[in-house]
Amino acid sequence: MSSTSSTGSFPVKRGLAEMLKGGVIMDVVTPEQAKIAEDAGACAVMALERVPADIRRDGGVARMSDPDMIDGIQEAVSIPVMAKARIGHFVEAQILQALGVDFVDESEVLTPADEAHHIDKFAFTVPFVCGATNLGEALRRISEGAAMIRSKGEAGTGNVVEAVRHLRSILGDIRRIGTADSAELFDWAKKLQAPLPLIQEVAESGRLPVPIFCAGGLATPADAALAMQLGAEAVFVGSGIFKSDNPAKRARAIVEATTHFENPDILVKVSRDLGAPMTGIGMDEINQKYAERGW
């Protein structure tokens, strides 16, 4: 047996993202909600004080959650627990790492702490997930050490349109880069403002170097299956579950829809009798697009 082992390496960070594939990560604000999510088959929970719909409604500065609240959720469930830090707020991330959270989401849903810099994620043992609206943004986050990329979508709206836009942009550009010749890749790097070696890696492999998940506005089993059919490898559901009439049943339905995303018979079955979804809002009704946060 070898005596050397290392924690916090990039393969170890990306490894947890690999384990979450095909699953649903659910926003929860209490240990009770976390139990409901785990019982429904969530592959992880995101512990936060307010779901994005409430952050949007209440306004003010949204920050990292209270450590006591995160502790309570960690004690309640055995599945991985994620938590959000503000963009650029590396001290919030240090606190979350010391709490032993399994993944940090450097999230545009919270109020940004730095308007130029994201966190240097290589400096941490805990893995990070970051949002992206296009391939350039995704590759910039990966170059900073993100082990998972998610679409930003538009959190707290119950409206999937922005998540679809972001997924199509990221995955569409990956397909286009796959057909570019080597000289064109220099231009892609300029256009996307992304490191050339990562552009070349994407061109070669036809995929991002880390898993790509979908987040931001998913509210129904059909939304989850849409994200998966478009090419997402797992989904985050925020306000969509606990702002609906029957969270336990909807959570279970979204889990099944994410696994069986290509099976219309199962999608019919799980879409029945779920009670009302969250009401949702149109993009022209909101005054702050969270997706515009991040650089």
């Binding site: 070898s2 082992s5 924690t7 170890v12 947890l16 991985p80 790492q97 032993g100 399994d102 893995p127």
Partner: peptide
Amino acid sequence: RRNAYGRQVDSFETDLD
């Protein structure tokens, strides 16, 4: 025993014989 090697911050890689 589930998760007996710890949380994600304790996850690791190593060479095995």
